[in-house]
Design a protein around this nucleic acid. Sequence first.
DNA 1: ACGTCTTCCTGGGCGC
DNA 2: TGCGCCCAGGAAGACG
Length: 285
Amino acid sequence: MPELPEVECIRLSLAQKMLGARILGVVLHRADMLDGVMGTSRPDALLKGQQIVEFKRHGKQLALCTNSGRALIIRLGMSGQLFLTHDNDRASKHTHVHAVWRWQKKTRSGQLFFRDPRRFGGLQALPDRDELTAHFAQLGPDALTITRFQLAAALKGAHGPRRSPIKSLLLDQQRLAGVGNIYADEALFRAKIAPMRESGKLSAQDARTLATSIRAILSDAIQSGGSTIRDYVNGSGASGAFQQRHQVYGRAGEPCVRCNAVLKSTAIAQRTTVWCPACQPVVVE
DNA sequence: ACGTCTTCCTGGGCGC
DNA sequence: TGCGCCCAGGAAGACG
């Protein structure tokens, strides 16, 4: 999916055009993509008749908040897209569209499409803002503003130092919200920390460096419009450019940009992990 | 409670 | 060109 920077770029592009818009009608093509309808009608859950007052994001999750207090969470999974107009040049965009919202804002009107071929994403309806707050609170702190203290607390854990590799911890949305496979590798490279090092054995200085690296990588990526690997586009259909600045992701076997050593690929948490064995020492003196 | 592994899907890219 | 295989931006759920 879209990791935090891509979701943030989608959020910004949608907010620019749709903030204040009223939802005139909704079509849900696949009922199994929607959760949380219990106790309410499906159109209400999908925000029909309501006005969008805020687009919120926590980690990789986006929430559409309305004047009636309801919220609709959108998770994009691996292949999810949100876009405002059909691109007639690409017929594929017309397939796997699971939901369409028809909206109007003063004299402007349009449609918002939710497309997700792999269907790892989904929609979740929440009845009020407290539920949304509680829902987001189940996730770890947002990675874009992660502090060294928050990260150090996650490394330590509630019941002693964590044994899992630092990369696994970065991917765990309950510990830190927003980092996925691309930005985990990029942040660890920037911080010069090997992805397989035990989380609980990182020093306070490591935590500080890593927190700084995570924030820097994510905000740089947002500035570049996100990373387009296959088909990511923001709400307006624009691709990102950050993929051109990846230092390790997708570069296994190529030379390290810092030291020229050959980048290695290793599986950690069942995810392809690329790192520099020279810049990111496994054993630290 | 914790850490690891399987599984849910479709589609693009590659080798043959 | 076509087929089969492998891989992919995620994360819930099962298991030990």
